[in-house]
Amino acid sequence: MKVWEYILRRLLLAVLVVFGVSVVTFFIARVVPSDPAALWVGPRPSPDQIAAARVKLGLDRPLYIQYFYYLGNLLRGDLGVSIKTHQPIVQDLRAYLPATLELVLVGMAMAVFIGIPLGVLSAARRNRLLDHFSRLIAVAAVSIPTFWLGLLLQLIFFGQLRWLPIGGRVSIETTLYQPIQTVTGFYLVDTLITRNWPAFWDALTHIILPAFTLATYAIGLTIRMTRSTMVEVLQEKYIVAARAAGLPERTILFRLALKNALVPTLTVLALSFVYSLTGAILVEVIFSWPGLGSYVTSAIINVDFPVIIAVTLIVTVFYVLINLVLDLVQVALDPRVVLK
């Protein structure tokens, strides 16, 4: 199979999956027992108002026509309007999505820089103290309830030590005296670009706890996957050959062996990236982080269905995209993938 043919197949599959996802989300939105039209009007609606809202929202038309409109709007990048605030959802997302992405990306960086080295060293010192230690961390990390860990960290680092803030993206002082100019929506990036050092430091201290909480699960998975694939790779003949060529152990572990072990590890990282996008819902609630999670939880309380569906759809599209990117990265990392 040619490389482009492989890529084309993956692309087609991705399009198919996104289409299926839109059908499923639409269907979920329509089995809601509560009446969207009634919610749209607000408290104590009159029957006339509800009927008018029903026509306005297109709820009087047959289901497949409704889906057709829904799909048409989606293709034009219109995710609908919040029933509660009557705001276009896309506008809300523009404010919330960067906050969540920043949190998730910092968390993923932690997973990469903690998980992969621990996994590699664990495999290299198999059945020694470090190995037992990191395996214990790995299994604890995937078993611990995220929301509970967040609370514990707050109790220790805010309640007891007073080292780190309890929540939010920046402190009130920063918003008042060192306001952040929004460029990308990523505070760490924005403050760097505008050389707003106090605000950068403030944003950094705010992101550490929630990002770490979020990253725990990914760290656990990464340690596990890196360790098990590295154990296999280290038994390969080319590792003995590399030693026979006099290459230093560091090069062998972190360069020659790791690249062979990277494909499964990346798969796990990509999975945890998306898991983190949803895990962020819990973390954001605990750390009052103004992102998608806070957005969607308030939507749940208000039964604001277009919002819930839009967030589900957006995150899922991310998921599909990441998987697509992963497929392409695999081809780049291991030249034999296409042949399989």
């Binding site: 003949k237 590399a242 026979a244 062979n260 291991d334």
Partner: peptide
């Protein structure tokens, strides 16, 4: 002092 092995396909790193 250098060494070569029985199965060269396995002794060469496949991803470099």
């Amino acid at each position: 002092i250098a060494m070569i092995f029985q199965d060269p396909a396995a002794a060469l790193n496949p991803v470099f």
